[in-house]
Deep mutational scan, measured.
Amino acid sequence: VTTYKLVINGKTLKGETTTKAVDAETAEKAFKQYANDNGVDGVWTYDDATKTFTVTEMV
C-alpha cells in the first residue's frame, strides 16, 4: 500500500489531499471521484516519481 497525493488547482477549490491505495490506478479512481464530488473538472497529470496526481481546471 502506497500513499498518493492529489494537488487540486481548481477555479474555486485549491488544495491537497492524500489517499492510500494498492496502485496508482486505484488512487486515480478515488481522486477522480473526490474531484467529481467537489465539482472539479480539469486536466489530469501524474508524476510517478513523487506519486502525485494534479488536476488543473482551465479558466
Rank of each mutant, 00 (worst) to 15 (best):
K29D: 05
F53S: 00
T3V: 12
K29E: 07
V59A: 12
D47P: 00
V22Q: 10
G15K: 13
K14F: 10
V43G: 04
K20P: 07
T45R: 06
M58L: 11
G15N: 10
K32G: 03
T26Y: 06
K14T: 11
E16P: 03
A49C: 07
K32Y: 05
K5D: 02
K29Y: 09
T26C: 06
G42L: 02
V40I: 15
A49D: 10
T17R: 13
G15D: 12
V43Y: 08
V55F: 03
T3N: 07
V43Q: 09
E25H: 13
A24I: 12
Y4G: 00
K11I: 12
D47Y: 04
W44C: 02
W44T: 01
N38C: 10
G15R: 14
V22L: 14
T18K: 07
V7G: 02
I8R: 01
A49R: 08
T19V: 12
D48S: 12
K20Y: 15
L6T: 01
Y34D: 02
G39E: 06
T12N: 14
F31P: 00
N9D: 10
E57D: 09
F53L: 01
V7F: 09
V55N: 01
G15Q: 14
K20V: 15
W44I: 03
N9A: 09
V55E: 00
Y46V: 01
Y4S: 00
D48I: 12
A21M: 03
K51A: 06
F31D: 00
T45M: 11
E16R: 07
T56A: 05
V1L: 09
D23L: 04
D41Q: 13
A35D: 01
T2W: 15
V22F: 13
K14C: 09
G42N: 01
K11P: 09
D41M: 11
Y46I: 01
V7R: 07
N9Y: 15
D23W: 04
Y34R: 03
A35W: 03
T52A: 03
E25G: 10
A30C: 09
D47W: 03
V59I: 11
G10Y: 08
Y4V: 01
T56R: 05
D41I: 14
A30Q: 10
G42I: 02
T18G: 03
V7Q: 07
T2L: 14
T56C: 05
T26M: 13
T45N: 09
A30V: 14
D48K: 09
A21Y: 04
T3F: 08
M58G: 11
A27E: 00
D37I: 11
K32C: 04
Y4H: 02
M58D: 12
T3E: 14
T19N: 04
T54E: 04
T26Q: 12
D41Y: 15
I8S: 03
T19G: 04
K32R: 15
